[in-house]
Design a protein around this nucleic acid. Sequence first.
DNA 1: GATGAATGAGATTTCATTCAT
DNA 2: AATGAATGAAATCTCATTCAT
Lengths: 223, 223, 223, 223
Amino acid sequence: MKVDKRAAKENKILDAAERKFSEIGFQNTRMEDIAKEVEISKGSVYFYFASKENLYMAVTYRAFLFLLQEFDLLVQAGLENTGKETVIELVKFYLEFCEKQAGYHDLLMNYHNLVRTNNNTISDHTFSKAMLESNFYQKIREVHNLPLSLVVKEIQRGQQDGSIRNKQPAILLYLTGWSLISGFTLIRGANRQRNQDTLFQVSIPDWRAYIEMMMFRVLDADQ
Amino acid sequence: MKVDKRAAKENKILDAAERKFSEIGFQNTRMEDIAKEVEISKGSVYFYFASKENLYMAVTYRAFLFLLQEFDLLVQAGLENTGKETVIELVKFYLEFCEKQAGYHDLLMNYHNLVRTNNNTISDHTFSKAMLESNFYQKIREVHNLPLSLVVKEIQRGQQDGSIRNKQPAILLYLTGWSLISGFTLIRGANRQRNQDTLFQVSIPDWRAYIEMMMFRVLDADQ
Amino acid sequence: MKVDKRAAKENKILDAAERKFSEIGFQNTRMEDIAKEVEISKGSVYFYFASKENLYMAVTYRAFLFLLQEFDLLVQAGLENTGKETVIELVKFYLEFCEKQAGYHDLLMNYHNLVRTNNNTISDHTFSKAMLESNFYQKIREVHNLPLSLVVKEIQRGQQDGSIRNKQPAILLYLTGWSLISGFTLIRGANRQRNQDTLFQVSIPDWRAYIEMMMFRVLDADQ
Amino acid sequence: MKVDKRAAKENKILDAAERKFSEIGFQNTRMEDIAKEVEISKGSVYFYFASKENLYMAVTYRAFLFLLQEFDLLVQAGLENTGKETVIELVKFYLEFCEKQAGYHDLLMNYHNLVRTNNNTISDHTFSKAMLESNFYQKIREVHNLPLSLVVKEIQRGQQDGSIRNKQPAILLYLTGWSLISGFTLIRGANRQRNQDTLFQVSIPDWRAYIEMMMFRVLDADQ
DNA sequence: GATGAATGAGATTTCATTCAT
DNA sequence: AATGAATGAAATCTCATTCAT
C-alpha cells in the first residue's frame, strides 16, 4: 500500500536522522547530511518532515513509542511474577536500551528539558520554539508520562506484595533509580564510544553490574 | 598592575560567557551576546580569546580549577577526620556545586565527552576540532585527573582507617557516586529552573536528601 | 467529445488560477495551490499548461476574450443608439467588470506592462521572459488592440453623429477615460476587500457614481 | 559624525533598493542584487536593515517623507495664493513626482493595499506579515494621512475663497483627482519606459496635458 | 586596546518542474 | 491521463571572524 511505502521511507529518514543527531548532535547535523545518508535529496526530506525541528521531535516520538512498547511487553510478561522481579527486568532493559540505542537517552533528556523550559515562563529559548510547535511534540505530551506511571505502578505492586521492602514513595525510588542509570549513561558517554570498554581502568561491564546491584539494594533497603 | 587589569577583564568575559553558555547553550550563544553582557565590543572579546571555542574551553578550565581548589581545601581541612567524613564533605560540596554553579556540570560533562571523542579515532566531529586545539584544552589535560585521584585517595584512606566498610575498588565507588550525582543533576535540569522545587510531585530537596543517603549507604555497604 | 472535456478541465484550472493569482498574486501562488483548488494533482496542471507563466498568460488571454466578447455584444446591441449612448454602456460595463471580476484589471495591466517592457530593449526583466515566450502571449497580441479600436470607433461615431461634443482625438478620450477607471480600480483595491464600502469616509458607490459622471462630462466637454 | 556616516550608507542602500524594486519588483529583487549595486556584501545590507521586507518598508517610508516635505513646501509657498492655485501646484507636482521618481507611485499603492489587507481580517496574506511587522510600517502609519489631509485642506480653502467652484466634498474631489493621476501613471507604465513618448500614437506629454486640464475642469465644475 | 562595520561561508527552506508508475 | 514523490537551483538570513580607524 501507499501508506506502507510512505511509512517505510519516513522510517529510513528517521533512522538516518537518529544516527546523525546522536553522532554529532542536533545543531551540527545538516539536513543535507541526513538526505545523503538516505541517498535522497534535501527536498525529499522536507517532503516528509516540515522542518529540522519537526524531524527531531519525530525521532524523539519514535524513541518514546519504542520504549513504551518494550516496557509494556515486560510488564505483561511479568504479571505472574513479583513486582520486584518486573522492576528488575525494567531496569535491566532500560540500561540495555540506553547502551544500545544510539542517543535515545539524549533524546529523552532533551525532551525532558524542553517540557520544563516550556513550563518555565522565564526562559526565552527562542531556538526551541520550533520544537515546541511541532506536531510530534504534541503527540509526545500525550504519552510522556506513561513510562513513569507504568514503572511506578510496578514498584507499588512490589511494595504491596512484599517483594520490595523499601517503603519510600514509589516515585522517589523511581527518580533515584532513573538518576543512577542516567548518570551512568551520561558518563559512559552513551553510545558514542562503542569500542571502548574501560573508563579510568574500570571495566565498564563491571561498573554496570555494580550499578545494577545498587538498584537491587535500593529496592531491598528497609528505608 | 597591567596583568591584574587584564585578568580582571578576562574574568568578566568568562563570567558572561559562563552565564550565556549555561542559559542557552554553546551553539545558541552569539559572541555578540557575550560582548553585550560585559558591555564591550565583539572585537574586544576576540582580543582576549582567540575564538568562541577557545572561550568555551577557558570557561571550562576555570570551572575545573575552582572545583579542584575547593576539593583541595576540603581535603586539607579534613586531614584529622576519617576518610569517610571527608568523602561525605566532598560529596555534599559537589552536589551543592552542581546545584548552584550554573552549568558547571555541563561544562565538565562536555569536556569529558571531548576527551573520549578525541581518543576515539572513529569520530569525525570536525566541530570539536577547534576545541581540541584550544590552549585551554591542553591546560585542562594537565589537571583533569586531579579531582578524581584526590577523591579516590580519600576513599582509599577511608577503607584503610575502617570508616568505609565497602571494599570495592575506590574508583568503582567513585564512578558510581559520580553517576548518581550526575544523573540527579541532569534530571533536575541543572540550574535551568530555579523557581521549581518539585518534580513529578516529589520535593526536590527531599529527593536530594535521599540521593545523599544513598551515597552514605554505598560507603557503608559490606560489598 | 474529447475536446470539450479537455476544454472543460482547462477552464476549471483557469478558474482556480485566476482566483489565486488575484487573491495573493502571481508570485505568491504555488502551482500546488491551484492544483488543490481543482482537486487534481500538480502533475495534471502541467499536463494542460506548460508552465506557471504559460498558465498566467492563458488566464490573461481568457480575460481578454471575455472582455472583447462583452464589448462586442454591447456594440452590436447599440447599433441603433447614438455613439455616446454606446460608449456610456461600455464604460459602465468596464467599471462593473473591474469591480466584479477579481483581478481582471490586474491581468490587463500586467499584460500591458509586458508588451511595453518587451518593446523596450533596455529592460532585462529575465523573469518575464517565460511569459513573453508563452503561446498565449502570442495569441493575445493578435487581439489586444481590439477592445481599444472597438471603443475608439464608437467614440468616433459619437463625434460624427453629434452626440459626443468633445472633438479631441478619440484615442485621447479613450486613454483619459481608461486612466480614470484604472485609477479608481487601483485605489479601491480591486476585488481585495469585498466587505468594505467606504474609503476615507467616502462611500465607494458615491465615489464611483462621481467617476461615472466625470466620464460623461468628458464626452460632453466642448474641448 | 558616526551617525551621519551611518545615515549616508543607509541612504545609499535605500537608493539601490528603490532602483531595483522599481525596475524588477520586490519579489524579483535579490538582496545580493542590492548589495552588489552598493558594492558591499549581502551581510552588510542586513547590518543596516533587518530583513528584505524591512528594507522595502524603509524605502516606502522615505518616499512618504519626501512627498510630504514637498507638499508642505508647496503649501507654505502658496499661502498668499488662492486655494485653487495651490491645489494646481500640488497636482502638477504629484504628476511630475510619479513620472520622475522611479516607482514611488508603486510604493505608495502597495502601502495603501497593505493597510487595507491589514484591516481586513479575512486575508491571510502571510507573505505581507513581515512588512506589517516592520518598524518602518509603524512609522509610516503615523504620517500616512498627512498628504491627504494637507491637500484636502487646500481644496477646502479653495472652496471657501471661491476659487474652486465645485462644492462636492473635498475628499471626493481628492479621490477623483488621485484616481485620474494614478490611472495615468499606471497605464503610462510609470518610469519603466523612459525612452518612449507615445502610447497608441498619442504623444504622452499631450495626454498628460489633457489629464491636467481635466483636473482643472473638475475644480471648476459647478457640481 | 577598543570599536563596530564589513565579510562570506554555510544553513534552512521553498517550489517549479520532471518523470516513473 | 493522472499522480505525487523526487529533485535541485535559488533565495533569505546568521554569525564567527577580521581589520581599518
